[in-house]
Nucleic acid binder design. Structure first.
Lengths: 340, 340
DNA sequence: AATCATAAGTCATACGTATGACTTCGTCAA
DNA sequence: TTGACGAAGTCATACGTATGACTTATGATT
């Protein structure tokens, strides 16, 4: 069993350091715990540090954690890292967490339907202090609120959990007003079918804004698709082959907008000349496609970072659930123009 | 300090369970450790499980880890989750890790230049058993090999570390042959500037394949750019405004290809009629853009998964560094056509 | 001189689990 | 009857750290 690699070199412990420095283990612990002032003389501190250096010592996190009772680990629960939006959330979260000395463990629920089980398992298995949840349905939110863990829930309101809300209503309004001000009257809505609450807000604002503009609602102008390009393409086709097709489409997500792009091409329509497209999107994807997508910008990385901050703040001040709102802005790019 | 939320409810320990079930702590531990057969009677097992159920007990991972001496945590070090390729690697890694009961901690080095420090910190702070490294330079590889940790390095060869190599050479060949067989003679190379080894292979094959086809190499047909769309756009422009511009461009990455798309549009060139584009790419981005990108498909998720498997296998069989190669395939989509 | 305060350390213990060594008890073969 | 043996448990300890309680030594104050 003695193959080349030396696993033998046991990591040095505080006891080893103490022995080498000629002090007690407690002293080493005090030095590394930052509680040295007034308890350990500067001279001794130097000695300890030197000994530690020599042995390549660093405190064992596991033991420290066991003693202290908290792990400094939080979980980020997202449906799919493959989606650039969630990837950005993750990046933001990871950076913020590092600042507070926390570690983020990713739980990618994928398409797994009983992902609640995964979450609960993760919480149990790893000793996680709290979690950030993205994209859960309203009913699941209630379930999760029962877990006695600190949690921040993104883009969902909840009275039981701290939540970071995106001002989807205002965003939808900006998008619709942009289309209206360009002169569009025939505006369709390509919606996501995955979550009730968010869908409703967008749909509500969509209808309300049209109503206020004196445009009557057409049920056949609202179609749904999952966050999959091909599905969006099919749904968009349904809109484009209507006898009286829309001149603009308001999309719930960038992926859906890409589906529209593809459908438009199928029908020989040029964007934005023949068809305007607008959607919610973080920046990357919106800028990757051609023409670049006019979008309600969702600051994904900032959202991830802020969620972590709220979570950590919750650990410290032991207060009731908070709610915070992220405002969204319209970024006009190349996918919208006046109707022909 | 007694605010609403009850943090008071201490988690049940094996001792609590033992007391309730009327057995010793050891017995509880045996049951939950799966070592019950032959040591604990089925009857007692039931009793223990029932008691655990009642108390909502699950073993404390931190304590178990301290006792067992290994954390079941591995780190995945990548430059940018925002890049769909790395996001997919992460997803694959995360799923594979879960299968082996490992947890993946993400370390996103970003543009941070001294990311080696970050890696080392991560290894020390969290008790990480090994790591998977993506996209490091050759010189850094040597540095990291010194750390006495298990590691798997992706897309880099190393005699000191287990490596998962992508058959970039063969992939480049496939790409070039595809372009040649379409009748292209004026083929340019838009290369990445971030890593010597990979760059060299692609460039070598690019030149060799042209040479074999009896086409002499033109230095002005090779340009470099970082993995940033706008930079690629500028580099591609340099190619397109040559007095004798290429009819096809071979790109080292999908992001670079997107830059080419944008540059082509700037110059009023249609893809693939006026300009063929081919590149290395995982699937998502290649299919998101229009026309869909003909590409050497890099199975990112599989790579992530395989890297984890190799890492875990390395923990078990304590053997010397292994090397494994992932073969790549050409996927013809809409961005390539015969030259006009 | 006696008392007190402070600095500089050390001691002992607890965090919750896993496991090798040990005990107890009933059964069965010799 | 004895001894051996396996099954079913229990005991005691170690993993490495943090920290409240305790001990000295050194001045300073009255």
């Amino acid at each position: 069993m003695n193959t080349s690699r030396e696993k033998s070199k046991r990591n040095a412990t505080s006891i080893d350091v103490a022995r080498l420095a000629g002090v007690s283990q407690s002293t080493v612990s005090l030095v590394f715990g930052g509680k040295a002032s007034g308890r350990v003389s500067p001279l001794t501190q130097k000695a300890v540090l030197r000994a530690a250096q020599e042995l390549g010592y660093s405190p064992n996190t596991v033991a420290r954690t066991l003693r202290l009772g908290h792990t400094n680990i939080v979980a980020l629960i997202i449906p799919d890292v493959g989606n650039p939006f969630f990837a950005s959330v993750l990046r933001g979260a990871e950076q913020a967490a590092r600042k507070y000395n926390y570690t983020v463990v990713l739980v990618n629920t994928g398409n797994d339907q009983d992902w609640q089980r995964i979450v609960v398992e993760a919480l149990a298995t790893h000793s996680i202090e709290g979690f950030v949840l993205c994209s859960v349905s309203t009913s699941d939110t209630l379930e999760l609120a029962k877990l006695k863990h600190r949690a921040v829930i993104v883009d969902r309101s909840s009275t039981e959990l701290t939540s970071l809300i995106l001002d989807i209503g205002r965003g939808s309004q900006l998008a619709m007003q942009h289309l209206l001000s360009l002169g569009h009257r025939k505006i369709a809505h390509l919606a996501t079918n995955i979550d009730a609450e968010t869908f409703e807000i967008r749909q509500q604002v969509y209808e309300a804004t049209l109503h206020k503009a004196g445009i009557s609602n057409r049920p056949d102008y609202t179609v749904q698709a999952a966050f999959i390009i091909d599905e969006a393409r099919i749904a968009a086709s349904a809109l484009l082959k209507l006898p009286d097709p829309p001149t603009a489409i308001f999309c719930d997500d960038a992926l859906l907008a890409i589906g529209v792009y593809k459908a438009a091409k199928d029908y020989g329509l040029a964007i934005p000349q023949d068809l305007s497209v607008i959607g919610f999107s973080e920046g990357f994807l919106a800028k990757a496609i051609d023409p670049e997508l006019t979008a309600i910008a969702i600051p994904a990385a900032e959202i991830g970072a802020r969620a972590i901050e709220m979570l950590v703040a919750g650990f410290q001040t032991n207060e009731n659930p908070q709610t915070e709102t992220v405002s969204l802005e319209l970024v006009v790019r190349g996918s919208t123009a006046p109707p022909r």
